[in-house]
Design a binder for these strands. Structure first.
Lengths: 257, 257
DNA sequence: CCGACTCTGTGAATATTGTTACAATGTAGC
DNA sequence: GCTACATTGTAACAATATTCACAGAGTCGG
């Protein structure tokens, strides 16, 4: 099943049609599960750290240990897109990273809008990791007339009325929604109408989007609440202070998160 | 299968042993899947909004529509814990909300520590929704000697050295980790040693905890990166501006998030 | 070049999660 | 009280996701 006969990793290619066609290499054979797509950025992040540490090669087992995921899962996930490894050796870190980045499209620059410029919106604008990873905040919107017109960094806060025209003009496909729950669905509808196809929602409500768009929800409250159940019900584990912490354990269930 | 013969919702009880024993009502018959536990807070949130709207009764179908989830899934999820509904009518909003809150244990107060008092830590301390839902920030820690000793609100920022003693003393079981990636695993280990059993991690790295503890990861960057794939690969959907937005659609896949 | 070892990619088996479909129960109008 | 209708809880089924396990390739030290 290996097609690259030998040679250095840098020459490894995925299949006949040298270099990546358009990403989603083997994605012809059926759809790729979303759950796989969601793990890819986590693999990419870990690979980035490995590269920074100067590690050249990593096996699915090692990577899995770092992430608390089984080696088989990593191999299977990657196999949706091609063959990136070498028997007996593992994966070349730089090569695999570049491939995963290309698959996800995160080797490109993505313009992003922020809707809602309260504390959270402001914090996100100044969150440097976004810029560092290619997400460029390019438009700000707020409902509040007092804020509209204000200048932040080199951006002006726009009114929601201007949203459709500006987003289309700038071909913005991604937005971060940081408005109160009450206005979130309405804002999302406006975004979709304006051509946005991916929304990161911070509002504490499930916002619905049509099937041709994507949304992810971030809510610390919900995350905390989903853990209290176990605090309340389990009563296991060493008493605090007893039991030395060697941390040989891997993640609870082989599931990320 | 219905045991409550009739009577008002307020009198409904789940089974013989009146009132909730310790939560996890029917949780004897095997373990409850984590994925179910994760949906519960979302149901609870929606029920809270319904209650605030003055709605008295809701069917699994209506609730499912609000959340983009199938009615059957909601019924199945709830059935792990008991029988809360009434044929022909649905669920009493107040009653179901109180039951779900009790199952999750979010009708209690939970003391929480914040580790890492940078911008994010500060923002979380002042995020009122946490307090409003019973999460009381009760201890702050930072690695930076310049910050240690400073007073914020009525809390003092403590050094990491003090963490074990303070957390045990205050019986703190939950923590929010808001430190840089480099220090996250070490900090988590310290938390676990100090008796913490649930961690909300904001550091951009997969932090591993032993099987008797829980962790959830929040990372906007990863969330955005998992959506670029679709922007990059799909090219479906109405062109922006065409196609009226009636929003009859429900969520893409019947999956939350 | 050999032999012992490592590690990938994947078919098959298993485990987990979600849906369908319906009996049982209750509602509501008259 | 009777009839038409709504809705639950769940068994059976279907679909998804994960792991097992191994053939095939490649490594590595001498």
């Amino acid at each position: 099943m290996q097609r690259h006969s030998s040679g250095a990793f840098a020459e490894m290619r995925v299949n006949a049609e040298d270099s990546i066609p358009s990403s989603a290499l083997r994605a012809d054979e059926g759809e790729i599960p979303d759950i796989v797509i969601r793990r890819l950025p986590i693999y990419a992040r870990s690979l980035k750290y490995l590269a920074e540490e100067g590690v050249e090669t990593v096996s699915s087992g090692e990577l899995g240990n770092r992430l608390g995921v089984s080696a088989a899962q990593i191999r299977r996930d990657l196999s949706y897109f091609g063959e990136f490894g070498k028997q007996g050796k593992g994966y070349n870190v730089d090569f695999l990273l570049s491939q995963v980045n290309a698959i996800l499209g995160i080797d490109k620059e993505w313009p992003v809008a922020i809707i809602g410029f309260g504390h959270l919106g402001r914090a996100l604008l100044h969150y440097d990791a976004l810029k560092a990873q290619g997400f460029r905040i390019q438009a700000l919107f707020d409902h509040n007339p007092e804020k509209v017109g204000q200048k932040v960094d080199n951006l002006v806060i726009h009114s929601m009325d201007e949203l459709p025209a500006l987003l289309r003009e700038q071909k913005i496909k991604m937005a971060i929604l940081a408005v109160p729950a009450g206005g979130a669905q309405e804002a999302a509808d406006a975004l979709i109408d304006a051509g946005v196809r991916a929304i990161l929602n911070y509002a504490p409500i499930i916002v619905q989007v049509p099937p041709y768009a994507r949304i992810r929800h971030i809510d610390p409250l919900v995350a905390l609440q989903s853990m209290t159940y176990y605090l309340y019900n389990d009563e296991e584990g060493p008493q605090a202070g007893i039991g030395r912490n060697g941390r040989e354990y891997r993640a609870r269930s082989g599931k990320l998160d």
